[in-house]
């Protein structure tokens, strides 16, 4: 476990793979940006210097702008922060009042098999069969022998024999009875569930 990273995953930082030109660009660009940064912070640096008794601050800042300008900007920023907090809080409270206490969506204990079947227009049994297979080629050409489908496809792709597919989930195939049950329309399924007679 890497102590600096709770996930224990090693960070990739390999400066040795950087070319000399890239190193030069990285360092120069960063140096330029730091200079710009310090330039932007100049008034604050002046302020610090002024605080310790060096009056360069007055010449650089007060002579070119006014204290009133600075106060106006600080005041505007303060009001903006307050407004952001208040608006976010009121908006959040209003929506909690409108939505939070009226959670109409309830947990359902129902599989999505039938919905998937309806959406993809295929029998639920076929979806169940696919869900039991370890490997699938999509779209399937050989629905009766999907394992051979995978082997054929991989062999066609790689040009050589592949390891045979392991026996797939005990060769899952729904019986005729299961097929009929699984193909029931959704409303019948729901009624059976309500009656406590789930398949």
């Amino acid at each position: 476990m890497n102590k600096e990273n709770p996930s224990g995953i090693e960070i990739i930082d390999v400066p040795e793979v950087k070319t000399l030109s890239r190193k030069i660009v990285d360092y120069s660009f960063t140096a330029i940006m730091w200079v710009m940064w310090l330039y932007l912070l100049m008034p604050l640096i002046n302020l610090l210097l002024w605080a310790v008794g060096i009056h360069f601050f007055y010449n650089q800042v007060m002579a070119t702008t006014t204290a009133a300008d600075i106060m106006a900007m600080m005041s505007a920023a303060g009001w903006a922060i307050l407004a952001v907090f208040v608006v976010l809080r009121v908006w959040g409270l209003y929506n909690y009042w409108a939505f939070g206490k009226h959670d109409r969506r309830k947990a359902k204990d129902m599989s999505t098999i039938y919905g998937l079947a309806r959406f993809h227009r295929m029998p639920p049994s076929r979806i169940l069969a696919m869900q039991e297979r370890q490997e699938v080629v999509w779209p399937m050409y050989r629905t009766l022998h999907p394992d051979r489908d995978v082997e054929d496809w991989l062999e066609g792709k790689t040009g050589r024999n592949v390891t045979p597919i392991r026996k797939q989930a005990d060769e899952y195939a729904p019986s005729e009875h299961q097929e009929m049950e699984l193909s029931l329309p959704l409303h019948e399924e729901l009624e059976r569930k309500k009656a406590g007679d789930s398949p």
Partner: peptide, 10 residues
């Protein structure tokens, strides 16, 4: 430059 820049940097 000046205070506007400082505000952004801060």
């Amino acid at each position: 430059p000046m205070w506007t820049g400082s505000v952004l940097a801060m």
